[in-house]
Design a protein around this nucleic acid. Structure first.
Length: 644
RNA sequence: GCCGGUUUAGCUCAGUCGGUAGAGCAACUGAUUUGUAAUCAGUAGGUCGCGGGUUCGACUCCUGCAACCGGCACCA
């Protein structure tokens, strides 16, 4: 006999080989009916799986959050069955559960189009209505290989091929259709329910490799209930409303046009926001001991050969040739320029660390398909800096950068930060010994950060070609992750350029170079802020902070007075004296995301008051002009300059 | 770069079977002096992304290119 322990602590004996379903039935038929899976010692399993040891068992109902991945996984299988039933000749590959849904990759001569989705979805509902049992079978590897190859399923065949000979594998059958699958699954297709939807079609490379065939992927989502599905679709709409490309246009911040793909045309308001960020960062850096510099935009090919850029990623560089046949490149990075700047003039160990910062504009020829608003562009501004130091200063510098980054992110409300260590990539420069040292140094930093309670992880092979990096990823208001800051330890570039300092022993020493950025790309960070705040920028970031709106022309003089006083306090103010109804003005400025409307009519003018309307609120407060402006001026002070 | 889709007025979008274009909002003009998310009326605005082709005739059909959108790959 084996002993099965239930969540309430009760334990009962059963015959070995008893299934979860048997146990559920023995407790109550209704339990058996509403249960779709179980966990054995915490691991999700098929309800039909035989149990042959002492375990802790918990039944999982369809509305259990743990059942969600089963619903989605089963839906992926049904999607594949539907696709093959409707479109003979379609080959199946893989169909995993992903965040918020699932997908299935198919191979077809002609890829699926959006028009196919409603048809497939209808067929899926049919298959779900059939409510066929989902049954697991264990096949030998060779049996499975034979089966799929006979069916002409070359991709499944390749997957099975990769499995060691002699191993058995799981086959899940629903009716006549079956798929190779790790499982677990629910007892029948009917359990999937109706709360699912096919979302989009896309191309995707087989095994994520761009040298392999392109498959046709169908994305879908599924939930336990219609309410959950609707809530999810609603969230997607909300995210669309935050889209910086849309808000950027509506708020008059920037635009793009064909002549400059991947290049931002910043309008006055957008540039004001951009410059507010630059000024803020400039103050934080200055306080952090950095010196700001500026280095050339266009540099000779020879320099990029020395740095290794020419060899490792020329295809990403904008090149230009002059009349005299000399080849130059627009800088894709600032580091070589900073090494040259460091080299200019003899440095002593007493000078270290030398911290050079630049708001450097870099150009990178990104693949056309990668461009995305201001988030991914071909010309952008980095808050870049390079710290030239000795090996034993790395830890201290990296921790200092860490503190600065976290403090800066906090000023924008980003408190959920993950630090990821990216190690040596295949395409790289420098000796393995140098990489060992650099990775060890950053590894120690990562350990220290973890010790301080930061979330950390490791991404093997994701480092820069000249060194490993720590990547700072922040989470925005709707939970999306953005990689922004970075700290990179580089034992290569200074040596390649022959940079040195004089050590305490009078010998020449090669400095270590720490690359770091905090916003990363200013363009991108601006986009992240727009989406994070959904366009409702805090007062200190808002390009137009206040619009003074009059109700009648009789208040015009007073409006001028309000604007003048506000400007004296450093606030950025517009006036709307147009002959329009106040509701019209309120609507227009609300749509333009102006954070504060000060409304002045006859009453306010007579009593030296202002009516205050904040963006996103219907409330209208009334306050004395001087007090209102003083409060706004305080609120508009950048966080690093606030005294109280 | 790859797969699929899209491109018509400043914005959002109609446009049948091939007969050289239409709405709402915005803009402009006039009237309205208005109390917290759209006052009324009028006017103007288009090389239908760009280039070839088919046709008596192309926004419409074919074709090349570009940009953009959704993914994939990429993100040094």
């Amino acid at each position: 006999m084996i002993h099965v322990t239930f969540p309430d602590g009760a334990s009962r004996p059963f015959e070995p080989g008893v299934s979860g379903l048997d146990i559920a039935k023995s407790i109550s038929p209704s339990l058996a009916k509403r249960t779709v899976a179980m966990t054995l010692d915490g691991a999700l399993a098929d309800l039909a799986a035989p149990i042959d040891r002492d375990v802790k068992l918990e039944f999982v109902g369809r509305d259990d959050p743990r059942a969600l991945e089963l619903i989605r996984h089963d839906a992926a299988h049904v999607l594949a069955e539907a696709a093959q039933e409707l479109f003979p000749g379609t080959q199946v590959t893989i169909g995993p559960v992903i965040e918020n849904g699932f997908y299935y990759d198919f191979y077809r001569e002609t890829p699926f189009t959006v028009e196919d989705l409603p048809v497939i979805e209808k067929k899926m509902r049919e298959i779900i209505a059939r409510d066929r049992p989902i049954v697991k079978e264990v096949w030998s590897r060779d049996q499975a290989l034979d089966f799929f190859e006979k069916k002409g399923e070359a991709f499944k065949g390749e997957l099975i091929d990769a499995i060691p000979a002699g191993e058995n594998l799981n086959i899940y059958k629903q009716g006549d259709w079956l798929d190779l699958c790790r499982g677990p699954h629910m007892p029948s297709t009917g359990k999937i329910g109706a709360a699912f939807k096919l979302m989009k079609v896309a191309g995707a490379y087989w095994r994520g490799d761009h040298n392999r065939p392109m498959l046709s992927r169908i994305y879908g989502t599924a939930f336990a209930t219609k309410e959950d599905l609707d809530a999810y679709l609603h969230r997607l709409e909300e995210a669309e409303r935050r889209d910086h490309r849309r808000l950027g246009r509506e708020m008059g911040l920037f635009h793009f046009q064909e002549e400059g793909p991947g290049a931002v045309f910043w309008h006055a308001k957008g540039w004001t926001l951009f410059q507010t960020l630059v000024s803020y960062m400039r103050r934080r850096q200055k306080a952090g001991g950095y010196q700001e510099v500026n280095t050339p935009q266009v540099l000779d090919r020879a320099l990029w050969e020395t740095s290794g850029h020419w060899q490792t990623y020329r295809e990403h560089m904008f090149l230009t040739k002059t009349e005299d046949e000399r080849t130059f490149a627009l800088k894709p990075m600032n580091c070589p320029g900073h090494v040259l700047l460091f080299k200019n003039g003899l440095k002593s160990y007493r000078d270290l660390p030398v911290k050079i910062a630049e708001f450097g504009i870099v150009h990178r020829y990104e693949p056309s398909g990668a461009l995305h608003g201001v988030m991914r562009v071909r010309a952008f501004t980095q808050d870049d800096a390079h710290i030239f130091c000795s090996e034993d200063q790395i830890m201290r510098e990296a921790l200092e950068i860490n503190d600065l980054i976290l403090s800066i992110y906090g000023d924008f409300g980003f408190d959920d930060v993950v630090v990821k260590l990216s190690t040596r990539p295949e395409k790289r420069v420098g000796s393995d010994e140098a990489w060992d040292k650099a990775e060890a140094a950053l590894g120690k930093v990562l350990e220290e950060l973890a010790r301080r309670g930061l979330k950390t992880s490791v991404q093997p092979g994701e480092g820069a070609f000249y060194g490993p990096k720590l990547e700072y990823t922040l989470r925005d208001a709707i939970g999306r992750e953005w990689q922004c800051g970075t700290t990179q330890v580089d034992f290569n570039l200074p040596g390649r350029f022959g940079a040195f300092y004089i050590g305490a022993d009078s010998e020449k020493k090669t400095p270590v170079m720490v690359h770091r950025a905090m916003f990363g790309s200013l363009e991108r960070f601006t986009g992240i802020l727009i989406e994070h705040y959904a366009g409702h920028l805090p007062l200190w970031l808002s390009p137009t902070q206040i619009v003074v709106c009059t109700i009648t022309q009789e208040a015009d003089d007073y409006a001028h007075e309000i604007a003048a006083s506000a400007r004296k306090l450093g606030l950025s103010v517009d006036m709307d004296l147009r002959n329009e109804k106040i509701s019209y003005k309120v609507r227009e400025h609300s749509l333009a995301k102006v954070p504060v409307l000060l409304i002045a009519g006859k009453k306010e003018a007579a009593e030296r008051l202002v009516s205050i309307r904040r963006l996103g609120s219907q409330e209208q407060g009334s306050a004395k002009l001087d007090e209102a402006l003083a409060a706004l001026a305080h609120e508009a002070t950048p966080p690093d300059l606030k005294t109280a």
